[in-house]
Design a protein around this nucleic acid. Sequence first.
DNA 1: TTGAAAGCGCTAACAT
DNA 2: ATGTTAGCGCTTTCAA
Lengths: 332, 332
Amino acid sequence: MVFKYQAAVTLAQVAEAAGVGESTVSRVLRNHGSFSGKTRDRVMAAVERLGYVPNRIAGTLASAGSRLVAFVIPSLSNIVFADVLRGAGGTLEENQHQAVFAVTDYDPEREEALVASMLAWRPTAVMLAGYEHTEGTVKMLRAASCRVVELLDVDGVALDLAVGFSNRAAGRESAHFMLKRGYRRIGYVGHDLDRDTRAGKRYSSFRETLSSDRMPLVDQEIHAGASSVEIGRLGLERLLARSPDLDAVYFSNDDMALGGYFHCLARGISIPSQLAIFGYNGLDIGRVTPQPLSTIRTPRVAIGQVAAQLVVANAPPQVVDLGFQLIEGATA
Amino acid sequence: MVFKYQAAVTLAQVAEAAGVGESTVSRVLRNHGSFSGKTRDRVMAAVERLGYVPNRIAGTLASAGSRLVAFVIPSLSNIVFADVLRGAGGTLEENQHQAVFAVTDYDPEREEALVASMLAWRPTAVMLAGYEHTEGTVKMLRAASCRVVELLDVDGVALDLAVGFSNRAAGRESAHFMLKRGYRRIGYVGHDLDRDTRAGKRYSSFRETLSSDRMPLVDQEIHAGASSVEIGRLGLERLLARSPDLDAVYFSNDDMALGGYFHCLARGISIPSQLAIFGYNGLDIGRVTPQPLSTIRTPRVAIGQVAAQLVVANAPPQVVDLGFQLIEGATA
DNA sequence: TTGAAAGCGCTAACAT
DNA sequence: ATGTTAGCGCTTTCAA
């Protein structure tokens, strides 16, 4: 059973009702080309009367760009991507673009399939997380006549545009900070590094930095699935069960770190004197915990904004490094 | 300057390359109608060779449905909507539908504008939060030949489909629970109730329930903007400065409640003996805090799933109440 | 099983 | 300033 029939009003019907030609209606509606004020009034009156809603499907086919921007992102639960979308949303809207999105769950194969179906909408641009894509994805993207923006990473070679910051530098600076603070027995609690390749980059450069300072990572606990507060709490519990003498732990992100923080609160482990905690992302919630979380704040909203601006301006291929900010906080 | 020209490959070019008619290619690609195995192979070879990606814009115009589902949601930062989107995402994808979205920031006027621009894409359905819309929005939606789904609320009259739960019942049950627990001097910390009308419904039924038990709300602190952990913390601080003798506080949602929880931790206010805290939403993080948060868990992901199923099945107009679950927790 | 041809609702040249 | 017309790239009859 189908509900709601009523064929939509078309531009031709508006033209008819207003007693003008179709192109005149089109011109008035797009406020492009010339027409008299009187004509405009008649057209607008007809539009109003008939409740005409332009058909952008037809419009797009007839003209050039779809003004659709496709986001193919790993997750929606992760506030990071929501922030990027929010940043982009405003700019896109101001420029009459629409955001379309699909979620990969950090699966490169799914990313490939989703990019393919996005491309079918002939978007102005496709926005992806990071540089790690399947060969098929890269091939399609290269062949497509749309802009490609890789987000949240600048460690690698961009397909076209890239807006982000260096995850390697983030891992390195986190390590330097902790060493500078005097921590010597450092552990790591993380989530699926194969899938979240940006977390993987932070991890390896953190680890390498410690090693090159002759202060190697003492122990680590890595969960195979997605990051969450719960997994962070559990991870720290397990890590401490194995290595109770750690004096600091680096977490794969703030969600995980928050879990660790809660574990310490629950167990009466005093922070940072008994155990220091360091996160990554700079989520708002980390500023409001009894002790502000030590972390790295990433410019997520700005990344979305800049990405959108580059796309609407059709800027030349480039990599924009927006950097990040180390927040000393009170947990490390 | 424009980058990346290369006109996309069209179906006509594939037909030419395969030495068959356009309609044959179309049939093969959609696996619809009849064609020989040999023809199929030749077509697929040509598709592969040319790297053809079907143009859904053209396809949609020529046929009927766009298979686009438009979400017009208040916020992306609020995990609630991310969860609903996530729930819907899977089902939509399995049924070859694409999600498009726009964010209103809880502004009904913006909602109206965004609904208008969404309708221009001739979506299969428009999904909105709740029942409170401008007259213009309602008029457009009624006139549109697409399904309309109102999410997260069932207290009111639906335009077409609605999937959610009763916010009034949630407020009422929260009040009953707190009274049953023996709290007598109850306060409220909330955010912008005019904009977040579902929070407003919970608030008023909470308040009415207390009053009808001759135990009226003692004091309240309402912030004009959006909810956040920070605003929750600040709100509780202000409320307690005015009314230090409260024994329990109801928060407009878990983010706010978490802020209140942090405030208590920071000030050494013991929970729940000195002050009880009750939230709303049942976020994952509330299960991992040192004391699990007392709250109401809402079926956000399920709401998205059901909404998507109803739409792809083109089900008759109906209201689906998915209920909610009161979580006793340890903070009240 | 296959192809030819008529649209889908608009935009953009080109006339007038 | 305005109308006419030829597409945009598909799907869908309708014939063959």
